[in-house]
Computed example of a mutant assay.
Amino acid sequence: MNKIKLISVLVINLFFYMLSKVIPKNKDLWVFGAWFGQKYSDNPKFFFEFVNVNHSDNTKAVWITKNSNIVKNLQEKGYCVYHERSIKGIWHQLRASKAIICQSLHDDLFSPCIGKRTEVVQLWHGIPLKKIMFDAFSKNKRRKNLIGRLFDWLTPYNEHRNDIVIATGELTKNMLAKAFKVPTNKVLTCGFPRNDVFFENVENVENVENVEFKCIYMPTFRGGIASECDLFEKYGFEIKQMEAELTKHNIHLTLRMHPVNKPPSRIVEQIKNSKVIKLDNGDDIYQSIQQYDCLITDYSSIYFDFLLSNKPIVFAPFDLEFYKKCERALYFEFEDVTLKPYCYSWNNILERLIELKNESQSSEYQKQYTFLKAKFHNDNVQGSSPFSSQLYNELTK
């Protein structure tokens, strides 16, 4: 039965793949997808909304998803959205001139419908600290046996294909060109659409003593999917002390674990009724990232984006030596692309947050910050949606 099902799927997918080769493309139709078709988030989301708001007369933007809840939610907002296997979803994918993704074509969209005449635009999901794609995995790739090679030949739509990749500057342009195996002239240094949020008009409040200081802790991925991750008690997170000090200095702390991790259940229980510590499990951090006054992280590449906010970043690499040994290779020496001083316990973090709230940043810290920002981002940023605007202009030249 499984063999019959597999053969049926192969035949159906190949039929759509052949259709994608002959069906004419509509140059004004673009399809978008993200995160395995299960989320409405990240760079594709922000670029999708930008196109809908600013260029709907010239470009039809269609969101494609595997998630029926996303279909319902986006329809209620008035957007054009279809399930990837629905008749209209298949038709729009077959007709699209551009497919805009942030993972891979076969993850984010129904890849048999995306033929070679549809341009695949890879927006990715951040500046990588750890090596990615072909930089990370190609050396360990084993040669497939005859059956594996035959299966690849029968499923050409599953190959990694990226016609355009985006980057934030010259350094990341060269990195991503190598990682995705694309020519550098196919990498657009237009920045990430999700980072437009750092250029929206927000109320500017002077950081005086009685103003709430909002901080967010965002560590990187650890262990297995859905695994509990103790970056708390092991490193001195004592709830009563934390609450007392945070309350005293009017500091509010949000804990946001990597999407595939969760904090220990006892920590969740302890902070359930806290007024100054909370958990955030929202789908898209970029909806709220600009409201925070400070980012705390270890190795999460979100700090590259947060540099655009010009707000302080606290690095807490509790297990730095272990991480270097056990995780996949990094593009840079950690110490060369991060801001000191480092915090190796929650007591260190508390002291640093109080210092940042009540005192001006040192000239050395500001110098480090400016250097890192210039290293990873172009400085010719203008307007309220600078990165989406640049990307749209590049794609419609």
Rank of each mutant, 00 (worst) to 15 (best):
G78K: 08
S288L: 09
E321G: 00
S104K: 02
N261T: 09
D305C: 05
R143E: 14
W124F: 02
T247K: 15
T220Y: 00
T189W: 05
K234G: 08
Y342T: 13
F199N: 09
S288W: 02
P341M: 05
E245H: 07
I277A: 07
N67K: 15
Y79F: 15
K234N: 13
V381S: 00
I64S: 12
S300N: 10
Y82E: 14
I164A: 04
N69E: 15
K39N: 14
F232S: 01
N13T: 01
K5C: 00
Q382G: 02
C343N: 15
D336G: 04
P112V: 03
I302E: 01
K278P: 02
K262N: 12
I285F: 05
L353S: 08
Y79R: 07
K72G: 00
P259R: 12
L150G: 08
K373H: 01
E170L: 07
K375S: 04
N204E: 13
I114W: 05
S385P: 04
L6G: 07
L255H: 06
Y299R: 01
N54Y: 14
T65M: 02
I100S: 05
N43C: 01
T338G: 00
Y235N: 13
N380D: 12
E170N: 13
K3T: 14
K357Q: 05
F47E: 07
K186Y: 10
A316Q: 04
I114L: 08
K186F: 08
G33P: 06
T155I: 03
F46V: 04
T396N: 12
E355L: 14
L188K: 09
I296Q: 01
E209D: 15
K248M: 12
K375C: 01
Y303K: 06
A329K: 11
Q103H: 13
S41V: 11
F376Q: 05
R142Y: 09
K178S: 15
V11M: 13
I349A: 06
D280F: 06
I101P: 02
F192T: 09
